[in-house]
Computed example of a mutant assay.
Amino acid sequence: MSGRIDYQIEKYSFTEAAETPQLARQWREVLEQSRQQKAGAEERLRLALQTVDYVTSFELPFRLLLIRTPQLIAALRNEFPLQQKNVLFNAKRFGCVYSLKTDLDKIPDEFQYRLVTRIRREDSAETNAAPYQQIAKEAKAPRERLRLALESGLPVTALDGLFWFGIQRIAADVQRLRKTGLKIATSETEIFDSLTGTVRLVPVYRRVG
Rank of each mutant, 00 (worst) to 15 (best):
Leu150Phe: 05
Thr117Glu: 06
Ala136Thr: 04
Tyr113Lys: 00
Leu104Asp: 06
Leu66Ile: 03
Phe89Ile: 02
Ala41Pro: 11
Arg46Asp: 13
Gln84Pro: 10
Leu115Ala: 00
Glu29Trp: 01
Gln33Ser: 08
Phe58Cys: 02
Thr127Glu: 14
Tyr54Pro: 08
Leu88Tyr: 10
Glu138Arg: 12
Gln134Glu: 12
Ala130Arg: 13
Leu104Glu: 09
Arg120Phe: 10
Ser57Gln: 12
Asp109Ser: 08
Ile119Val: 13
Leu65Asn: 13
Phe62Ser: 10
Tyr54Lys: 07
Asp123Pro: 12
Leu23Phe: 09
Leu82Arg: 06
Val55Lys: 07
Ala48Pro: 06
Ser13Asp: 12
Pro61Met: 01
Leu100Glu: 02
Lys11Thr: 14
Glu29His: 00
Ser34Asn: 00
Ala39Phe: 06
Asp53Ile: 00
Lys106Tyr: 05
Phe111Glu: 07
Ile107Thr: 01
Arg147Gln: 14
Glu19Trp: 03
Pro21Tyr: 02
Leu72Lys: 06
Glu110Cys: 03
Ala125Asp: 14
Phe80Ala: 05
Leu31Arg: 05
Leu60Thr: 07
Gln33Glu: 13
Glu110His: 12
Gln134Ile: 14
Ala17Met: 01
Asp123Trp: 01
Leu72Gly: 13
Arg114Glu: 10
Leu45Thr: 04
Arg145His: 04
Ala24Cys: 00
Asn128Ala: 15
Glu126Tyr: 15
Leu64Trp: 05
Asn86Cys: 03
Ile135His: 06
Arg145Thr: 04
Tyr12Gln: 07
Ala141Asp: 15
Glu110Lys: 12
Lys137Asp: 09
Gln134Asn: 13
Asn90Tyr: 01
Ala141Leu: 13
Ser34Asp: 01
Val87Pro: 14
Glu32Phe: 11
Ala141Ile: 14
Leu150Val: 11
Thr56Gln: 08
Leu47His: 03
Ala24Ile: 04
Leu82His: 09
Glu126Ser: 11
Leu23Gly: 00
Ala136Ser: 15
Arg28Phe: 05
Leu49Asp: 07
Lys140Pro: 02
Ala141Tyr: 08
Leu45Asp: 08
Arg93Phe: 14
Ala18Gly: 03
Lys101Asn: 03
Ala149Glu: 08
Glu32His: 12
Val87His: 04
Lys92Thr: 12
Glu32Asn: 08
Arg25Trp: 01
Tyr98Asp: 12
Leu146Met: 11
Asn90Arg: 01
Asp103Ser: 02
Phe80Gln: 04
Gln83Leu: 08
Leu100Cys: 08
Ile119Glu: 00
Lys11Gln: 15
Arg118Val: 09
Leu49Glu: 10
Ser34Met: 02
Thr51Gln: 04
Leu76Cys: 04
Arg63Asn: 04
Pro142Ile: 12
Thr127Val: 14
Ala139Met: 11
Arg68Asn: 15
Phe94Arg: 11
Gln33Thr: 09
Leu60Asp: 09
Glu122His: 14
Gln36Ala: 15
Arg143Gly: 15
Asp109Glu: 13
Pro142Asp: 14
Ala129Pro: 00
Leu104Cys: 11
Glu126Ala: 11
Arg77Glu: 15
Arg68Lys: 15
Ala41Phe: 10
Phe62Pro: 00
Thr127Ile: 15
Leu104Trp: 07
Ala74Met: 12
Ser13Val: 10
Glu32Trp: 09
Thr69Ile: 10
Glu144Met: 13
Asp103Met: 01
Phe58Lys: 10
Lys137Gln: 14
Gln112Asp: 09
